[in-house]
C-alpha cells in the first residue's frame, strides 16, 4: 500500500467511524487490509478499495471495521471505578428512581456489560420495585455475536471474584459461560457512535460506560460523541471513561464529581 493509498483509506475509515489511524499505524492497517483483499478475491488495493467504496450493501465496510477495531477487554476491568458505580452511584440513583438504565458503549465481546449486570444484580437484588437493564453496543458485529453467546476464557474472567464466578458462571470445559439470568438483562446491538441517527435514538440513560473506546478517535469525533452522550443521559446522569482518558480534555460540558473511589463525569 502506498502512502497515498493509506491516506485515502484512512480518511474513508475516519469519516465512517471516527477512528483515526496515524502514520505509525500504517503497518497494522496494511496487514489487516491485505487479509481483506485476499478474502474478497481482489489482487490489489486499488481494485479492492474501489469495490469497497461502491459496495451499496455496506457488508465489506462492516468486515473491514471488524478487522480493524481493537477489542481487548476483560471482566471487572478498573475495579475502583466499578466500586464507585456499585457503592456510591447506584445507591444515589435508587433513592431517586425505580427504573435504572445503564449503557456500555463500545462493549466489545461483552465483558464490561456483563460485569455491570452482575454488579447490579448483587446491589439491587431484593430491593423491591426496582427494575433495571443494561444496553450494550459496539460497531463491530463479530464481537456482538460473541457477546451474545457469552462464553469466556480463563484469561477473560481472571479478575472475577471467586464468589461471583461460582454464582454467575457455569464451567464448560476450559470456558466459563455466563448464566441465563444475567444474559437476559443485557441487550446487545450494533451501533456506530458516529452515526447521528442511531445515536439520537439512545435516550434516558442514567449511567454510560464508554471506556477505552474514544482513545482511537480524533478530537473532533470525540467531541461529537460527547455531545451525543449528553443528549442520551438523564439530568444528572453519569459517564465513565477509561482510567487514562479525560472528559475535561474533550469538552467542558460535564461536571467532574469526586467520589470516594473515583472521579466521574456528570451531566
Amino acid at each position: 500500500m502506498t502512502a497515498e493509498e493509506f491516506i485515502k483509506l484512512r480518511d474513508f475509515i475516519y469519516r465512517k467511524t471516527g477512528i483515526y489511524f496515524e502514520e505509525r499505524k500504517k503497518y497494522y492497517v496494511e496487514s489487516r487490509v491485505e487479509d481483506r483483499i485476499k478474502a474478497t478475491g481482489h489482487d490489489n488495493f486499488r481494485s479492492y478499495f474501489t469495490w469497497l467504496r461502491f459496495d451499496v450493501t455496506g457488508k465489506e465496510l462492516q468486515e473491514l471495521i471488524n478487522a480493524l477495531t481493537v477489542n481487548e477487554t476483560y471482566f471487572f476491568r478498573e475495579y475502583y471505578q466499578l466500586k464507585c458505580f456499585a457503592e456510591e452511584i447506584l445507591p444515589e440513583i435508587v433513592e431517586k428512581k425505580s427504573s435504572i438504565r445503564v449503557w456500555s458503549a463500545g462493549c466489545s465481546t461483552g465483558e464490561e456489560p456483563y460485569t455491570l449486570a452482575i454488579i447490579m444484580e448483587e446491589m439491587l437484588e431484593g430491593i423491591s420495585g426496582v427494575t433495571w437493564e443494561v444496553h450494550a453496543t459496539d460497531i463491530n458485529t463479530e464481537v456482538i455475536e460473541k457477546a451474545e453467546v457469552g462464553l469466556y476464557s480463563q484469561r477473560s474472567v481472571r479478575l472475577v471474584p471467586e464468589e461471583y464466578k461460582m454464582r454467575y458462571f457455569v464451567a464448560k470445559g476450559e470456558f466459563y459461560e455466563i448464566v441465563p439470568e444475567v444474559k437476559k438483562k443485557v441487550k446487545f446491538y450494533q451501533l456506530n457512535l458516529m452515526d447521528a441517527t442511531a445515536m439520537r435514538k439512545m435516550s434516558g440513560f442514567d449511567v454510560i460506560f464508554c471506556r477505552n473506546v474514544l482513545i482511537y478517535f480524533d478530537d473532533a469525533s470525540r467531541r461529537q460523541v460527547a455531545l451525543y452522550f449528553y443528549e442520551a443521559l438523564t439530568e444528572g446522569g453519569y459517564i465513565f471513561l477509561g482510567h487514562s482518558e479525560s472528559m475535561s480534555r474533550i469538552t467542558p460540558i460535564f461536571k467532574l464529581r469526586r467520589f470516594k473511589n473515583a472521579f466521574v463525569y456528570q451531566k
Binding site: 478530537d219 467531541r223 460540558i253
Partner: peptide
C-alpha cells in the same frame, strides 16, 4: 448556553 456553544464549535471543527 454552554452545551449549544460546544456543539457549534464541534460542528465548525468538523
Amino acid at each position: 448556553d454552554e452545551v449549544v456553544r460546544e456543539a457549534i464549535v464541534t460542528s465548525l471543527i468538523k
